[in-house]
């Protein structure tokens, strides 16, 4: 891939549900290899923006391109095949399958097995090795045969990330990966994210400011469906408009960490 091609580019993206406009023309360019966080108050449209990028909802207008491909109007599976994988804010895993099965399913398409009904999945060496490697990464190797539905919350969040990275997509979207976690769990999750997104482009929505400022190369601030600022963590901290709209409430928190 040409290094100048942005991993993800949004141009004047708008979304309305009925008469309500949620996203008011967002422009965003994310360079390849960058770790980018989107922050903003509740209801700012962060999750909606993720849903637009990943193809869960169609955009009302505007264009989105992924590594040079125009993905506006594409379905989630088409976007995934072009190299974008995402996680969900509300844990979205295969509850009735084992941890191993969850990860294994997520590797199948990227390893080229598609809809095959002539391969025995248990005999596919590359699938097994990749799955075991991912389980090792997310620290669930010892929970391999446990049904995903009975994992602890933090483990399910880890599995959520595992499913997202298993397909080896170069662009990863994480929607509030530490939502509902304790301080220690969030710190562990942050280390995990740091580890597994090595060499990839990461776009994440996150509320935990210690995670955001500890992890992101660049930060964008979304308020009422508009991107009011974009820059390095230092620039965002110093930005008056951001402080006005959002950071005021957060200053004590960031100083505490």
């Amino acid at each position: 891939m040409n290094t100048n091609t942005p991993a993800l580019a949004l141009h004047e993206v708008r979304k309305q549900f009925g008469a309500t406009q949620i996203i008011h023309g967002v422009n965003l360019v994310i360079a390849a290899g960058e770790r980018h966080a989107i922050i903003g108050p509740n209801g700012a449209g962060k999750s909606t923006l993720f849903n637009l990028i990943s193809g869960r909802f169609p955009v009302s207008s505007g264009r989105i391109s992924l590594r040079g491909h125009d993905i506006t109007g594409c379905t989630p599976f088409q976007i995934n095949r072009l190299g974008l994988a995402r996680s969900f804010q509300v844990t979205n895993i295969f509850h009735r399958m084992s941890v191993f099965e969850n990860i294994r399913c997520a590797t199948l398409w990227s390893l080229g097995y598609g809809y095959s009904f002539w391969h025995r999945v248990g005999a596919l060496r590359d699938v097994r090795e990749r799955s075991e490697q991912v389980m090792e990464h997310i620290g669930l190797a010892r929970r391999r045969d446990i049904s995903a539905g009975v994992l602890t919350y933090a483990e399910q969040r880890a599995l959520e990330i595992g499913i997202t990275i298993a397909g080896d997509a170069p662009v990863i979207l994480l929607d509030e990966p530490t939502a509902g976690m304790s301080r220690t769990e969030a710190a562990q999750a942050m280390a995990l994210i740091q580890r597994v997104t090595q060499g990839r482009t990461l776009l994440m929505v996150e509320h935990d400011m210690s995670v955001v400022f500890g992890l992101a190369d660049r930060i964008s601030v979304l308020v009422y469906g508009e991107c009011i600022a974009s820059g390095t963590p230092a620039e965002i901290r110093a930005n008056a408009a951001v402080q006005e709209a959002y950071l005021g409430s957060l200053h004590p928190q960031t100083e505490a960490t």
Binding site: R56, P76, F77, N80, R81, I93, C105, W109, I163
Partner: peptide, 10 residues
Amino acid sequence: DNPERAEFIG
């Protein structure tokens, strides 16, 4: 089990 997630893994 989860058609939506299946779409997001390709």
